[in-house]
């Protein structure tokens, strides 16, 4: 008993590298659940604004209101496909790492980052050309708030992917231990599928 107390009182570091594989799996399971709960709560954030958009739409006699135009749907579709495609490349990257094909992982991640940035550029182009303003109409309010929030998420995702890429180049992730990458990929998927909903809401419906 005395020995145990001693160990409890002055435990050694519990850093990532010092862990055995079993310990790592345990920590990973905890973090994975926490990360899922985070994505869940983040999706509520979008859901609330989507509810607001639908509510404002139901309150308006015509949608979008007179004098306001939707963003261009054709370019929007191209932009959406860029983002959806980046989800596929992110998925490929993840698989390459699991299969220990490191170079493939790096290339696919770089492509993902580029596609994500392209999407942001497309958004910027759209913002510059749309016939609506944030404060001018309820359509503008809903559109700029939701796509702005999503754009912010994409930006965070791009930075997140760059950070994981640098970390993996520094040798942090192995085919056995890559929770940070799993989280980044999941986050990227999350950002993707939010756009599935927003694309429908603002370009099609």
């Amino acid at each position: 008993m005395a020995v145990q107390t001693e160990a409890l009182g002055h435990g050694h570091g519990y850093g990532h590298e010092a862990m055995t594989q079993e310990e790592y799996v345990e920590q990973r399971d905890l973090r994975f659940l926490g990360f899922l709960l985070f994505l869940f709560t983040d999706s509520i954030f979008f859901t609330a604004y989507i509810f607001a958009a639908l509510y404002l739409r139901s309150a308006a006699p015509v949608w979008p209101p007179v004098g306001v135009e939707r963003p261009d749907v054709n370019l929007g579709a191209v932009n959406a496909i860029i983002l959806f495609g980046s989800g596929i490349t992110a998925h490929y990257a993840m698989h390459r790492l699991k299969e220990s094909r490191f170079i493939g992982y790096v290339w696919f991640t770089i492509v993902t980052i580029i596609l994500g940035s392209l999407f942001l550029g497309g958004q910027a182009y759209e913002y510059a050309h749309i016939h609506a303003t944030w404060s001018g109409s309820t359509f503008g309010a809903a559109f700029f708030t939701l796509t702005g929030l999503h754009g912010f998420h994409v930006l965070v995702g791009v930075v997140y992917l760059i950070v994981t890429l640098l970390q993996s180049v520094a040798g942090k992730y192995t085919p056995e231990r890559h929770f940070g990458l799993t989280a980044a990929t999941l986050y990227w998927h999350f950002v993707d599928v939010i756009w599935v909903v927003l694309f429908f809401l603002f370009y099609i419906y």
Binding site: V73, F84, L186, F190, V193, V196
Partner: peptide
């Protein structure tokens, strides 16, 4: 996530 992504692709295709 992938299922939703497929739905997104259907949207884009229809557009």
């Amino acid at each position: 996530m992938l299922t939703l992504l497929v739905i997104g692709c259907v949207e884009a295709l229809l557009v």
